[in-house]
């Protein structure tokens, strides 16, 4: 593998399905703390209404995302641009979009 190939690989953003899997794992970890681990998580699952999570849980997810993908995946900065009702209506799919976009520029 040449250096340019390595760089090219590193610049590729992770596939959508892969990101969804990662986020699912993070959410399951958060749900585990509440003893809720049997919820099916799809892109359509809403963070607050379906999973019953609160904004303080988003803080935990933000930390897990930046740990996994690096500092450029800054969920707090992304959510700061949304309105309250958009944050309350947040679906897993939007988190996936956000991670795919934020990692695309690497």
């Amino acid at each position: 593998m040449t250096i340019s190939q390595v760089t090219e690989t590193a610049q590729q953003s992770p596939a959508r399905a892969e990101v969804l899997d990662e986020i699912r794992g993070m959410l399951e970890k958060v749900l585990d703390q509440y003893g809720l681990d049997d919820t099916e998580i799809t892109e359509d699952t809403s963070f607050h209404d379906d999973l019953g999570l609160e904004s303080i849980d988003l803080v935990a997810v933000a930390a897990m995302l930046s740990e996994r993908y690096g500092e450029q995946v800054n969920l707090a900065a992304f959510l700061a641009e949304l309105d309250l009702d958009q944050v309350i209506a947040l679906r897993v799919g939007l988190l996936v979009d956000f991670v795919v976009d934020a990692t695309a520029g690497r």
Partner: peptide
């Protein structure tokens, strides 16, 4: 209420603007 009210609204833009940010529950 919790630190999330600030963490998800003001915290990141303030850090971005060159300020040290601290918040707690």
């Amino acid at each position: 209420d919790s630190l999330a009210s600030f963490y998800l609204t003001l915290a990141a833009p303030f850090a971005e603007a060159g300020m040290e940010v601290f918040t707690y529950d």
